[in-house]
């Protein structure tokens, strides 16, 4: 299984609901199984990305934080 990210979204500085809304729009362009990487600074996005993945069925495969930047890697359902 390749961990190649198909698309990276820079959502730094954006506030709710934009990180999720923009991710939802961007993931439409991907094929099933492809990975999208989202970089956000909104602390609320940690809970929101988890909830969004649970509700949409997309898989949150990686979640890290470095210097205030949250990185989410999501596999499209």
């Amino acid at each position: 299984m390749s961990m190649q990210v198909a698309k990276t979204l820079d959502l730094k500085g954006l506030s709710c609901p934009l990180p999720i809304v923009k991710t939802a729009q961007a993931i439409k362009e991907l094929a099933s199984g492809e990975l999208i990487e989202a970089l956000a600074t909104d602390p609320g996005s940690v809970a929101d990305f988890n909830a969004w993945c649970r509700s949409t069925g997309n898989e949150l495969v990686e979640q890290t934080e470095q210097d205030g930047v949250y990185r989410f890697v999501i596999r499209k359902k």
């Binding site: 649970r54 509700s55 949409t56 069925g57 898989e59 495969v61 990686e62 890290t64």
Partner: peptide, 11 residues
């Protein structure tokens, strides 16, 4: 880091 598999069904 990863959500347990059973939670994927939690729509």
């Amino acid at each position: 880091l990863a959500i347990p598999a059973h939670e994927h069904e939690e729509h």
